[in-house]
């Protein structure tokens, strides 16, 4: 097991290196310059700034310098934000996105699972159809539509929740709802389909023949087996939710990492673009690793060889 995790970590570094390289050169193709937006700078002043940040060096040299700093854990400083270190900016932004993401993930999957279980238990009933409709709506309508509707009705018309910005718990409610709808819809669909299949399988009859109660049957024998495929889709979804969704954070003016990412691209803030990209990639790969390990815990059939067999 330890060997397996070590191997996976090595792969992770290789992947990160490739991503760093690709995004570095792609980023340099962005039109414009990091200092264009500043109020009228003379050519001489611009030259000084370029020189200061080593932007006049040939691309390969810049690339090697960047990698060198990266290996020392230095992501550079922001061009735009008073030379604030990128690590510091990320650290201040990540908790906000994670807060929203975790909240949306928990609410979305729990409600979705409950909906799926109820739909499976009463399949082809009114409840099932209702849950089906909710799922289809949740999957097919993009979250920014919900965000807009929420802002209009709850924020403007009724005025019970703040329309945007960050501060109190009330500020998190609308973005959380907007974010939670997709995982809710997906997990409701998955749990329903899987549970119906699992509840029709032979080992459920075996369990019933043992005389176990309906609740045990449902949760101990049924749900655990039904959740296995859900874990696969939930992983990448968790990443995208916790690393901040670009659109939702923009709409609600939430100072999360997604909002920062969008801003940095628009202002050609190279170190921040690189830092955020690498953070997204790192987090994604990490979650996939966690999911793979989780898989082994939930499903003993795919427990990784090398451990206690």
């Amino acid at each position: 097991m330890a060997k397996y995790i070590f191997q996976r970590l090595v792969y992770m570094f290789i992947t990160l290196f490739i991503i760093a390289t690709a995004s570095f050169f792609l980023m340099k193709q962005l039109p414009g310059s990091p200092f264009k937006a500043e109020e009228k700078l003379s050519a001489a002043q611009l030259e000084i700034l370029y020189e200061k940040y080593n932007l006049n060096d040939p691309l390969p040299i810049q690339y090697l310098n960047y990698l060198g700093n990266l290996f020392q854990g230095d992501l550079g400083v922001s061009f735009q934000m008073n030379n604030q270190p990128v690590t510091e900016i990320l650290m201040s932004r990540i908790p906000v996105s994670a807060h929203l993401g975790i909240q949306a993930m928990i609410i979305g999957t729990i409600i979705g699972m409950l909906l799926g279980v109820v739909a499976a238990l009463y399949s082809n009933s009114v409840i099932d159809y209702a849950s089906n409709i909710i799922s289809v709506i949740g999957i097919s309508i993009p979250s920014f539509i919900f965000a807009g509707l929420l802002q209009y009705y709850l924020g403007v018309e009724l005025g019970i929740l703040p329309v945007a910005f960050w501060g109190s718990f009330a500020h998190t409610i609308m973005p959380t709802i907007a974010l939670a709808i997709f995982p809710l819809a997906i997990s409701a669909r998955f749990v329903r389909t899987e549970l119906i299949e699992v509840l029709g399988s032979d080992y459920i009859v075996t369990a019933r023949a043992k005389g176990v109660s309906n609740a045990t049957l449902m949760f101990k024998h049924g749900l655990r087996n039904a959740l296995i495929p859900l874990v696969t889709v939930m992983g990448p979804m968790a990443v995208s939710l916790m690393t901040g969704t670009l659109v939702i954070e923009q709409i609600f003016a939430v100072p999360g990492i997604g909002e920062q990412f969008v801003t940095s691209i628009m202002t050609d803030d190279f170190p921040i673009i690189m830092g955020t990209t690498l953070f997204f990639a790192f987090f994604f790969i990490l979650i996939i690793l966690v999911i793979d390990i989780l898989y082994g815990i939930i499903d003993p059939r795919i427990r990784i060889a090398g451990g206690k067999d």
């Binding site: 032979d202 101990k220 655990r224």
Partner: peptide
């Protein structure tokens, strides 16, 4: 039951 391959819960000891 008839089929031992499917009549045991795969995720339970």
């Amino acid at each position: 039951f008839q089929d031992p391959m499917t009549s045991l819960n795969p995720t339970m000891k």
